[in-house]
């Protein structure tokens, strides 16, 4: 949830997504158990874009993204919808059934899954459990105001 805690990191921001990556790195055995993951994911939070690279067993890079560097696919939603997703995760410790990544993009009314070609989009399905786990790291990364 949005907070004024001293350790809160502004959302959306590259440091906030890097904090997810750090939290995932701290739980490396879990991601190793889920298996290798090979996807470059674009994340659009309103006008702000982030490019998140997953290699081997985890996230290896988080960077700002203006849409020009290639990604396999991207997930886009308004900031308020992302905040709602993250708040649910923070309240519950994990996404509730209405707020899993696949459910949100399949419903398609608020979150969109897009990509230049289907095989790139299919990577979202191939590595879905790892991506879901990654975003659920948000339970330990407080959001501050951007």
């Amino acid at each position: 949830m949005t907070t004024d805690r001293a350790d809160a990191i502004s959302f959306p921001s590259t440091p906030w997504f890097r904090a997810l990556a750090d939290a995932a790195s701290a739980d490396e055995p879990r991601y190793r158990r889920l298996g290798v993951v090979e996807i470059t994911l674009g994340v659009n939070v309103g006008e702000q874009g982030y490019r998140i690279t997953f290699e081997d067993f985890g996230c290896t890079r988080v960077e700002d993204w203006d849409g020009s560097a290639p990604v396999d696919c991207s997930v886009s939603a308004d900031p308020s919808d992302w905040r709602e997703l993250i708040e649910h995760i923070q309240k519950r410790g994990s996404a509730d059934p209405e707020h899993t990544l696949n459910s949100l993009v399949l419903a398609g009314d608020r979150f969109a899954l897009t990509g230049d070609e289907q095989l790139g989009i299919d990577r979202f399905y191939r590595f879905n459990a790892s991506l879901q786990a990654f975003f659920e790291e948000a339970h330990s990364v407080p959001m501050g105001q951007a």
Partner: peptide, 24 residues
């Protein structure tokens, strides 16, 4: 994917997430 979307419990979500990966 539809099964994951339709799942009413965390367990059903989890099952469909895992089979989805294999199928993809």
């Amino acid at each position: 994917r539809f099964g994951e979307f339709l799942g009413k419990t965390d367990v059903d979500k989890q099952i469909f997430r895992m089979v989805m990966q294999d199928e993809a």
